[in-house]
Design a protein around this nucleic acid. Structure first.
Length: 273
DNA sequence: GCCCAGGAGTGCA
DNA sequence: TGCACTCATGGG
C-alpha cells in the first residue's frame, strides 16, 4: 500500500516535471500519477518520499527504485560539463521511469513537433474519451485506452482530441498494434528494437529513442530533439547538424549512462538552469 | 500575427 | 542519400 523511500534521490517534482511523463496532476501534498490502467499518489517532505498505491510492486518498478542514482549522478559529474553538473545537483532527485510500452509509443507519436502542455492535454482527452473511469483515494481518473479501443476509434477521434496531422499515424499504428501486439519487441537488443520501432507510422529516430528509453529500459538511448540540439550547440560547442550523428556523439561520450544524462541535460536546458 | 514545440513523411534531385 | 517542404494546433 505504501512505499517509503529516501527523498535525496527521489524527488516527485523532478521525476514528473522533467518531461518523461504526461499523465500527472497536483494532488494534496504531491501528485496524482497515472500509468496504463493504474494510479498512485506520490509526495515528499524532503526527507522521505511516499508512494501510495494498490499496486506497489508496479510502482516500485515504475519509479525505478531498485537502482542507485547516486552512482549515476557521480559518474555524470566527472565529465565536468557545467550544465550537466548544475542539473545533477539541482535535479538530484530525478529518476527515469519504467513506463508502459504502448502508452509510450502513442504518447511520443503525439509529442512530435509539439509542446509539453499541449501533449498533456491531448493525452488527457484521449484517456477521457476512450479509457475506463476509475477511482483512487477519492480521485477519479481514466485508464490509458487499449490499442484495440484506439484502433476502433480511428483517425476522426484522434483529430477531435486535438492530435492534428498525427491522427493518421495514430490510427495506423494502433490498428497494427491491436492486430499483432508488441510482445515481439520484448527482449530485443537496443539496435534491433530501434529499427523495429522505426517501422511504425509516426515513429522516427527521436520517438523511437524515447520509446526505447522510457518504455523498454534501454538506458543507453539518447533522444535528440530541439532542446537537446540547443544543448549540443551551446554547451558542447557542437558543429554537427545531423541529429543521427549528434545522437551517436552523445552515446559514445556517455555510454551506458546516455539516457540518464540526456534527461538531466534536457530538463536543465528547458528550465534555463 | 509570428515563432516555436521532446519531428516525421514525402517528393524530387 | 540529402534536402526542402509540409503537416495541425495552441501557448508565448
Amino acid at each position: 500500500m505504501i512505499i517509503d523511500y529516501n527523498a535525496e534521490y527521489f524527488n516527485p517534482e523532478h521525476v514528473l516535471e522533467c518531461g518523461q511523463i504526461f499523465r500527472f496532476t497536483p494532488f494534496k501534498e504531491g501528485y496524482f500519477v497515472c500509468s496504463a490502467d493504474k494510479a498512485c499518489y506520490v509526495h515528499s517532505d524532503g526527507v522521505k518520499t511516499i508512494v501510495k498505491s494498490d499496486d506497489c510492486d508496479y510502482f516500485y518498478n515504475y519509479f525505478d527504485l531498485d537502482r542507485d542514482y547516486s552512482e549515476i549522478v557521480n559518474r555524470a559529474k566527472v565529465h565536468n560539463i557545467p550544465l550537466l553538473t548544475r542539473s545533477c545537483e539541482h535535479f538530484k532527485g530525478l529518476r527515469l521511469l519504467n513506463q508502459n510500452r504502448e502508452e509510450m509509443l502513442y504518447s511520443f507519436i503525439i509529442s512530435q513537433n509539439n509542446n509539453i502542455p499541449r501533449i498533456k492535454g491531448i493525452i488527457s482527452r484521449i484517456c477521457g474519451g476512450l479509457g475506463e473511469k476509475r477511482e483512487y483515494l477519492g480521485e477519479s481518473y481514466y485508464t490509458f485506452p487499449t490499442s484495440s479501443k484506439l484502433a476502433a476509434a480511428g483517425a476522426e477521434f484522434f483529430r477531435s482530441a486535438g492530435c492534428g496531422y498525427r491522427d493518421a499515424f495514430l490510427a495506423e499504428t494502433s490498428a497494427r498494434v491491436a492486430q499483432e501486439g508488441i510482445s515481439h519487441l520484448e527482449n530485443l537488443d537496443g539496435n534491433t528494437l530501434k529499427s523495429e520501432l522505426l517501422k511504425y507510422k509516426g515513429v522516427g529516430a527521436k520517438v523511437a529513442d524515447c520509446v526505447a528509453l522510457f518504455g523498454f529500459g534501454k538506458r543507453d538511448s539518447f533522444p535528440v530533439d530541439t532542446w537537446v540540439e540547443k544543448v549540443y550547440k551551446e554547451d558542447f560547442n557542437g558543429t554537427l547538424t545531423d541529429r543521427a550523428k549528434i545522437t551517436e556523439y552523445f552515446r559514445s561520450l556517455f555510454g551506458e549512462d546516455a539516457g540518464y544524462v540526456q534527461q538531466y541535460l534536457f530538463y536543465g536546458k528547458r528550465v534555463n538552469l
